[in-house]
Design a protein around this nucleic acid. Structure first.
Lengths: 314, 314
DNA sequence: CTGTTAGCGCCTTCAG
DNA sequence: CTGAAGGCGCTAACAG
């Protein structure tokens, strides 16, 4: 009755008596007792790679909100710990502290995933696609990068470079594919050295930019695969006295408040990350309920946020 | 025995048999069953104001690591939800999902805290001081800001302004006090309009900077109470054509990777946040154990990270 | 319509 | 040294 179960029929008077008593005593059902009985925890776990990067905040928020409104509590674990300890996921899933896991970490080793799958434990990969291991929910990275490149082409650029991500990150591979597609469609060549690899961090974006600047035939525009790397690339251009957007236009991938406060303010592609997170939660909950469910690509269109770092070629 | 309890005596042979069987079956004790019996959850909750800001990442990581090595799992909740729902903390503490709460949110309303205290539920305020309500663990904000101002004075500045935080944030009040102390000690005046209030966000730092630039007798240096506000302030100076550090030196508060990639790279005061987080966990665990425990200020010295945004006055 | 009870998985205690 | 039993708080099923 305390759960407003409609199948329990009570005289209104008694019902009232019980409910006020409960309120007065400040009664709250004990989650463990309930969990033990119902064989469910009302808790979802989320493994996230790096809390420091603002892009992840959108994902976390979206997931948390969706989880909460579905009556779940979200348990957040830092991927570093998760992977390093190699033990943490067992603490969560095998000890049955959570009903399922959202894994947003690109770093999580495949063996761990296979282990989870073998145990039949429900999990959803968020912002990451791995075939034949379980449902994945991703945004359309390919399309997002095409949007960035098409925008630069629209401004009149023809020498467009890419600071892409590491080949072992599937998001990076899809963004690279999007870049290639857009370039090919416009009939533009991709000169040798125009695709540089960079890890997520600012420092790696800085290094990558320096490589581009050292090219004999430098690009007039560059798309960067992450926001942090773009910040680093901006700093590198600055350090080498390259005027942006005068001599070089730049577009970053993913949007966050800081993008508007870099110098110059960074044009970015905003992806539907919150929606992706919400959908992930939805998927996980249905998976827990026993539904058989496939992978999802969020179809909501990415949005180009135009700021000061991009303009026509010199 | 599965917990290596030394009080349980077993024949080595039997012990071995049990342990290998457990391993083979991949046995894991169910956290709920155990929790129900032991009246403990091995879980700590943490309420954090904004996951998007990189400064909080240090706090979360430090806490998570400390919790994990003490055998606890950390349950992270976004403060927005926490406060908005007003219900979330009940989900955690009253339903006894967690043994105690780390509250790192300045926004959490006092009534909520009093409510927790009234219920006798263990919690620790992190990076926030409220008297007479429970233990707090903070860094020495006052000293940190003194370090920033002393550094600027050492460079030869005499007209030093402060972009401070909102008066209802106690960290902001302490940083303001540190600014005043350092200025007074050096015998420097604080002209009218030299202390401007700004919320945490970049946009507010931008606005605050514009106010300073409009002053008839503009400062040659400014200390900014947050990293995000400093990024905004930098952008404002840039927009108004004010050369940094040529015409104006700037020092931010708290350090994160992005600080090194702003234009110009931002000089900051790095505070011992990880240590604060670790200490908070320690405090909470002792509180849970029934120890009576007071507030703590982390004494580790703040560190000035000198970058390109500061130099001698014009 | 109400009150009682079994049993979820664990740990501890007590009997064998 | 080993096995059995009780009870943590809850819910669902069942007896009154």
């Amino acid at each position: 009755m305390l759960n407003d179960d409609p199948t329990v029929s009570t005289r209104p008077e008694t019902r009232e008596r019980v409910l006020t008593a409960a309120r007065e005593l400040n009664y709250r059902p004990n989650a463990f007792g309930r969990g033990l009985k119902l064989q469910t925890t009302s808790t979802l776990g989320m493994v996230i790679p790096n809390l420091a990067y603002p892009v992840n905040a959108d994902i976390i928020r979206g997931a948390e909100q969706a989880a909460m409104s579905a009556g779940y509590v979200m348990l957040l674990v830092d991927a570093d710990e998760f992977v390093r300890a190699g033990e943490a996921y067992k603490r969560l899933l095998l000890e049955q502290r959570v009903d399922g896991l959202l894994i947003a970490s690109g770093g999580t080793q495949e063996p761990v995933l296979e282990d989870l799958a073998r145990h039949g434990l429900p999990f959803v990969l968020v912002n990451r696609r791995v075939s034949g291991i379980g449902p994945c929910v991703t945004v359309d990275d390919n399309r997002g990068m095409q949007l960035a490149v098409d925008y630069l082409i629209g401004l009149g650029h023809t020498r467009i470079a890419l600071i892409g991500g590491p080949a072992d990150a599937d998001t990076a591979r899809r963004r690279l594919a999007g870049y290639r597609t857009a370039m090919k469609r416009a009939g533009l060549p991709i000169p040798r050295g125009y695709v540089v690899e960079s890890a997520y961090e600012e420092a790696r974006g800085y290094d990558a930019m320096e490589k581009l600047l050292a090219l004999s035939s430098a690009p007039t525009a560059v798309a960067v695969w992450s926001l942090a790397a773009a910040a680093g690339a901006l700093a590198a251009a600055h350090a080498h006295g390259v005027d942006i957007p005068g001599r070089l236009s730049m577009v970053g991938f993913h949007d966050a408040p800081i993008a508007a406060y870099l110098a110059p303010a960074l044009t970015t592609v905003a992806m539907p990350l919150r929606e992706m997170a919400e959908r992930s939660v939805d998927t996980l909950i249905r998976l827990i309920a026993g539904e058989r469910i496939g992978s999802t690509v969020i179809k909501t269109a990415p949005r180009l946020v135009e700021r000061a770092s991009s303009g026509p070629p010199p």
